[in-house]
């Protein structure tokens, strides 16, 4: 594994406080996967095989509503986790798709190796606690934004905190994530610029 990839991975799992001899074992469990732009990484209806950490690219997680439209639930990008966690953990078919919106490189770990980390290194529970706490608070924060802010406020709040990588993906994904029509998103973008 190349040094930048190692750094991203170890930084993501900082809370596990891995000692140098543990790091070698840990790094060996990960394999790199590459995906072309617009390639499906995980399909709805199949079981998620990996927990990913993103090295490069942007990915979207979405489901299809009753009309068949994509409803974007979130994005992943360099340094962030990716994958369909409920499917990965419970080994049940995913309800959502994970798609590479840009050419992507991801490091993935299998479920059995992921679970072995918690058995072999108790400090991983600390990481797990913080990780799922962050996810929960993030989802709560997003729910509050969706329920209480106007479209304009949602747009402004998102643009202030969103990483640069997300600003170059097709507008329809960002619009869906912010629960607005692409035309509204486009109008707000023009207005704000």
């Amino acid at each position: 594994m190349e040094q930048p990839a190692k750094s991203i991975l170890l930084s993501f799992f900082k809370a596990a406080q891995l000692q140098s001899e543990q790091q070698a074992y840990f790094l060996n469990l990960w394999k790199e996967y590459t995906f072309k732009q617009n390639e499906l990484i995980t399909e709805a209806g199949r079981i998620e095989k990996h927990f990913y950490v993103v090295l490069e690219g942007v990915q979207a997680i979405y489901l299809l509503n009753q009309k068949g439209d994509k409803v974007v639930l979130g994005f992943s990008y360099m340094g962030s986790p990716s994958g369909i966690f409920d499917s990965f953990l419970h080994q049940k078919p995913a309800d959502t798709f994970l798609e590479a919106l840009k050419p992507s490189r991801l490091l993935g770990i299998s479920r059995s190796d992921y679970l072995s980390l918690f058995e072999a290194h108790p400090d991983f529970h600390k990481w797990g606690h913080l990780f799922f706490q962050d996810i929960l608070f993030g989802r709560l924060f997003r729910e509050v934004e969706l329920l209480t802010l106007s479209a304009e406020e949602r747009y402004t709040a998102f643009m202030q905190r969103c990483p640069e990588a997300l600003k170059v993906i097709p507008q329809k994904y960002l619009a869906s994530y912010l629960n607005m029509k692409p035309e509204t998103f486009s109008r707000l973008r023009r207005m704000m610029n």
Binding site: E43, A44, G45, L64, K67, G68, P93
Partner: peptide, 20 residues
């Protein structure tokens, strides 16, 4: 009348069939 086909919808349904 509004039937709009997408590959994602079709892939999801094909996976449902395969699982069954």
């Amino acid at each position: 009348a509004k039937l709009l086909l997408t590959p994602e919808n079709q892939i999801q349904r094909l996976n449902t069939i395969l699982n069954r």
